[in-house]
Amino acid sequence: MLPSENLPLEMMVKPKNKRLSLLVVVSIILVAAVGLMLVAFEDNLIFFNTPTDIVEKEIEADRRFRLGGLVEEESVRRDDDGLTTRFRVTDLTHTVEVSFRGILPDLFREGQGVVAEGKLNAAGVFIASEVLAKHDENYIPENVAEALKKSGQWRGAGE
């Protein structure tokens, strides 16, 4: 038997409370530290820049970065070589012209989200080396979407 088992109850509870308050204090410090770190590194945690970011941050030509936004409606054009696609990416405030040579993902559509990696050329056109499609959090059954489009009640994105 340990000596502590003969001690009065309040003496037995103490170390437990001490450990609990220690745990709470350490957790608060940890959360604060990580929170500050995340705020400090915010720029690096961002996966892509929006067209507005490009205007505001004045990203210089020849620096690689990712551009994200929506593919502007009726902006997608295919060059005669059949490989190069040109489209505009918009965040509804600013737009950026994008040129991409390669195969586009299945979800690439006008009105849909897109993240392109590449750099701006001197003319301010974003030359993408990779294009990824971003989809939103909404799921709609295929037949429902078709029926809505037929009846002209469609308000969602997509073709």
Partner: peptide, 22 residues
């Protein structure tokens, strides 16, 4: 908190699940 390629939550979003019952 950050912009990501992964889309935001569907089921636990504040405006309710943007997912049909089916």
């Amino acid at each position: 908190w950050w912009n990501t390629l992964h889309q935001p939550a569907t089921v636990s979003s504040l405006s309710g699940p943007s997912l049909p019952a089916s």
